[in-house]
Amino acid sequence: MTAHDIEYIEIYTADQQRTADYFVSGFGFRERARSRTDRLESVLLSQLGIQIVVSSGPAAEEFIAAHGDGIADVAFACEDVSATRDGAVAAGARLLPTADGEPPAVTGFGGVRHSLVRRLPGESAQLPPGRGWTPVTEPAAAAAPDASGADVPGLRRLDHIAVCIEAGRLYDQARFYIEGFGFEQYSSEYVTFGEQAMDSVVVRSPSTGITFTIVEPDATKEPGQLDEFLKRNGGSGVQHLAFLVDEIVPAVLTFESRGVEFLQTPGTYYDALAERISGLEETITDLRKANVLADRDEWGYLLQLFTRSPFERRTLFFELIQRQGAQGFGSSNIRALYEAVELARTATS
């Protein structure tokens, strides 16, 4: 009953070409295959072990109307599909109808489903089954070396998936993945920032190939960004995908030059960074240049930065993360950013 890896992520979008171009031109994904039916037109993009399916068509219209462009399927790789399916249903999931040849699928959270694909641990991900894919023989050259011959920074793997759910459902949702898919609870944390607060639980597969950070707003506090996401998304959904990179500063600068928009960090954040995290003094100038955030835990430190959402409803966005031993997810940056914005606001008022 254990899911061990992410097989693929499927995004439903009203503008397939524009969304696919965002990943290819911006992040260096390559187009691998295309499929077309009377219900759905899809393009499969890949980069190392990351597979993203971008789809549009009549089968996607109900999801898009309810949630806007976003992630409709987080497909799990399973050693035993039948056992995983039965375990998920026993934990409360509903079995969803699928077309001939497609893998079984169960409900997850909000409008997001989980297709269950048979793949043994250690095997490479394959084309999503049941689509009638036509391979693309000449992939886009966005991920090729640049004119100087240097390798362009790329994405190493999917680090984690951030899931935002309605207040009061956090622990039930975490329990669903533990009981239904064999995940384990990795950590939990309650974070306050100003008059707002959120609660979070991290669950992951024993293989560590799947990590969900599940967050909910504290309904007793002032509404904030999580409440805004839930409103714009029409309920629970995937808030962001986090991609692991080797060197975040050159990656940010490269992707930014290709049109990816990242969030801007107030200068006051870096004024306090050396005091908050020791050992980064020599790199703060570079971090400031790229707007990169930093956090430390007992195992090391991490660097991270978030994109602006490229979608109309401003829901789904993306994260780059560089880990130097750290095993956390940068929760201290929420408070640090809040304090930095307040310092900047009071300095100009």
Results as ranks from 00 to 15, higher is better:
Pro104Gly: 11
Ala167Gly: 00
Ala125Arg: 13
Ala142Asp: 12
Asp100Cys: 01
Leu120Gly: 08
Ser124Arg: 09
Glu102Cys: 08
Gly149Asn: 07
Thr98His: 13
Pro139Tyr: 00
Ala143Ser: 15
Arg94Ile: 11
Glu166Phe: 02
Pro104Thr: 08
Glu123Lys: 03
Pro153His: 09
Leu170Arg: 05
Leu155Tyr: 06
Pro121Val: 13
Leu170Gln: 03
Gly132Glu: 10
Pro129Ile: 08
Pro153Leu: 03
Tyr177His: 14
Phe109Tyr: 13
Arg118Pro: 02
Asp151Ser: 09
Pro153Lys: 02
Ala144Arg: 11
Val117Lys: 05
Ala140Asp: 14
Gln126Asp: 15
Ala162Thr: 13
Gly154Tyr: 03
Gly92Asp: 10
Gln126Asn: 14
Leu127Gln: 04
Pro128Arg: 11
Leu158Trp: 07
Pro129Glu: 09
Trp133Pro: 07
Thr134Asn: 11
Gly92Arg: 01
Tyr171Phe: 06
Ala147His: 10
Trp133Ala: 06
Tyr171Pro: 00
Leu116Ile: 04
Gln126Ser: 15
Gly130Tyr: 14
Asp100Ala: 11
Ala142Ile: 01
Ala162Gly: 10
Ala91Val: 07
Pro129Arg: 05
Ala144Asn: 13
Arg169Glu: 10
Ala141Ser: 09
Glu166Thr: 14
Leu170Met: 02
Tyr177Cys: 12
Leu96Cys: 14
Thr98Val: 15
Thr134Gly: 03
Leu170Tyr: 04
Gly154Phe: 05
Ala174Gln: 01
His114Arg: 09
Gly154Ile: 04
Ala174Phe: 01
